[in-house]
């Protein structure tokens, strides 16, 4: 479904992504782990065109991602994104946050979009917060709304960039729970995370990145239980 080939990206002289190669199959959950600054966020952001990659190809459903506005927009609709800091729209209610793009971008009828938004809120356990504003929610609730908002576009895959890193510890689980349910329902997911428990339990595959490279890639057992490289060993010794 998603193929990344020889992906490269630099910020000025800083070569941030070096020849990334990997594919994601439909329904697969891929966790990306690695030290801070290793290029995990940049890799995700290249996938839906928030960053413009320099060379290499990203192929989604057989279509190569180009950087004209239309192609980017299509790719973004196919790949939803959930951010570390939620980025809900503060001037819109929870329900409006979720319905906005289905109505204004996908041109779905309002009644239908509202129905769908309510179902999604129910699914993330926040049916009673439809009329609340983001500032009235806890971090965990915000992130669950952000997930519902991304799902409302009916994407083929969801990208998560450290979705629990900005949360107080007691709220991490409610978000991971929602993500686990999504995975079980067959959602294709790429998750940048420091939650090794989640990676181990939910991810079909783990990519370990360091210094802009994919250093190791394999099943959770292979990467977490038996890392091959010194860099992976050192990283895991720190986070586990």
């Amino acid at each position: 479904m998603l193929h990344i080939k020889d992906l490269n990206k630099s910020f000025g002289k800083n070569h941030v992504l070096k020849n990334l190669n990997f594919s994601v199959a439909p329904g697969e959950v891929v966790a990306i782990i690695g030290p801070s600054g290793s290029g995990k966020s940049t890799a995700l952001r290249c996938l839906n065109g928030l960053e413009i990659h320099e060379s290499g190809t990203i192929t989604l459903d057989g279509e190569v991602l180009t950087h004209d506005e239309k192609s980017l927009q299509t790719a973004r609709m196919k790949m939803g994104m959930v951010f570390q800091n939620f980025h809900l729209f503060p001037h819109l209610t929870v329900l409006e946050n979720i319905m906005f793009s289905p109505i204004n971008v996908k041109k779905i009828a309002k009644a239908q979009a509202e129905q769908q938004a309510k179902e999604l809120l129910h699914r993330v356990g926040l049916a009673d917060k439809a009329q609340a504003y983001p500032s009235q929610l806890s971090g965990g609730q915000k992130q669950r709304v952000a997930i519902a908002r991304a799902l409302a576009m009916e994407p083929e895959a969801l990208l998560f960039d450290e979705p629990t890193s900005a949360l107080d510890p007691e709220m991490v689980n409610e978000v991971l729970q929602v993500m686990q349910e999504l995975a079980e329902q067959g959602m294709t997911m790429i998750v940048v995370t420091h939650e090794m428990g989640f990676a181990k339990e939910v991810a079909d595959r783990i990519i370990f990145m360091a210094d802009g490279e994919i250093v190791e890639m394999g099943t959770a057992q292979q990467i977490i239980e038996a890392p091959q490289t010194d860099r992976a060993k050192a990283f895991l010794a720190n986070v586990l």
Partner: peptide, 15 residues
């Protein structure tokens, strides 16, 4: 982040 979230939801820039 507001720009990024909006773009990630497929919004065109003018919207």
């Amino acid at each position: 982040g507001q720009t990024e979230a909006a773009l990630a939801l497929g919004m065109p820039k003018s919207l």
